[in-house]
């Protein structure tokens, strides 16, 4: 419980730091400070009026989709740095959209488990929408669309499109099929998150996919003491991400929430900053 409170505090603090300019929600302005040169660790739309940092996925697609560029070194560097340092700790502690999903999960509806195969969809989303489509557009016509932002990202719809439509009546003219698609995705994600813990993280988030790949080698990781483990299964039972930490302590799906560590009665699991 104490660990969960600490995590919630970190999530809210991260949300506030990443979206400090709350007043912009009322004026409809976009923050223009120099912090926007930097990428946020979590998924947070840079068109959100309150956002003070850039979205790493939006930044990646912007560069890939621009003429004469085939790869977003700048954004990739940020993602790699965050991933190597923390892995999916970022999803569990720092991502504003992760917090939103957890709040939705508090709604008292029966929770379901997803088939494991759906965990792999996010890798396809990463490859097709973040890398392939922007690059294909850039090669074909000089400018590639940020396909993930354009067709999928529910964070952009929630944090940017809806607030901006409220403050900018002129944007209503731009509402069309594309926005309907995005709104549908957002609604599916909201309903999904009410019935499946972190539905978006598990199935669709390309940033989580990248951080997940780095979970196995990140400095911040989970330690497992096989000798201490009594195979009680308590860690697997409590894991909201559907992992068995005793089998795969550094699974690509682990968001480092620490519930298993807290539950383990024999201290076989621990979170460590492995510097050696």
């Amino acid at each position: 419980m104490k660990a969960d409170f600490r995590r919630k505090f970190a999530q809210f603090a991260s949300f506030v730091i990443t979206n400090r300019e709350v007043g912009n929600f009322f004026t409809g302005k976009i923050y223009k400070g120099n912090e926007k040169y930097l990428c946020a660790p979590g998924l947070n739309c840079y068109s959100c009026p309150a956002a003070t940092l850039s979205c790493p996925l939006g930044a990646m697609q912007t560069i890939i989709g621009s003429a004469g560029s085939v790869f977003g070194f700048y954004a990739f560097g940020f993602i790699l740095m965050f991933g190597v340092l923390c892995g999916r700790f970022i999803c569990g502690f720092l991502c504003p959209f992760g917090l939103f999903q957890e709040l939705l999960a508090k709604i008292p509806l029966p929770k379901k488990k997803l088939p494991q195969i759906l965990n792999y969809v996010k890798y396809a989303v990463l490859f097709i929408f973040v890398l392939l489509l922007p690059l294909a557009g850039a090669l074909a016509s000089g400018i590639g669309e940020p396909a993930f932002c354009q067709y999928i990202c529910p964070a952009g719809t929630l944090e940017a499109a809806i607030p901006l439509l409220i403050t900018h009546s002129e944007f209503m003219d731009s509402v069309g099929v594309l926005f309907a698609v995005k709104l549908t995705v957002l609604l599916i994600v909201i309903i999904g998150c009410m019935t499946v813990y972190r539905f978006f993280c598990k199935t669709l988030c390309p940033l989580g996919a990248l951080y997940g790949l780095l979970n196995k080698i990140s400095f911040y990781r989970m330690g497992f003491n096989k000798q201490a483990c009594v195979n009680c299964g308590a860690c697997e039972k409590i894991c909201p991400m559907g992992i068995n930490p005793a089998k795969s302590a550094n699974s690509t799906e682990c968001i480092r929430c620490g519930k298993c560590v807290e539950t383990c009665g024999v201290n076989a699991l621990n979170m460590v900053m492995k510097l050696r």
């Binding site: 976009i30 923050y31 223009k32 120099n34 926007k36 040169y37 990428c39 739309c45 840079y46 068109s47 956002a51 850039s54 979205c55 939006g58 930044a59 912007t62 560069i63 621009s66 560029s69 977003g72 070194f73 700048y74 954004a75 669309e145 940020p146 932002c149 354009q150 067709y151 990202c153 952009g156 719809t157 940017a160 499109a161 901006l164 439509l165 900018h168 944007f171 731009s174 509402v175 594309l178 926005f179 698609v181 995005k182 709104l183």
Partner: peptide, 23 residues
Amino acid sequence: WRGEGDAVYNKAIRVCMECIGLG
């Protein structure tokens, strides 16, 4: 060095209509 930071900044300080499904 390639100017990607500037490109990201310039994208991030304007409403990206296509990014939010309005373009």
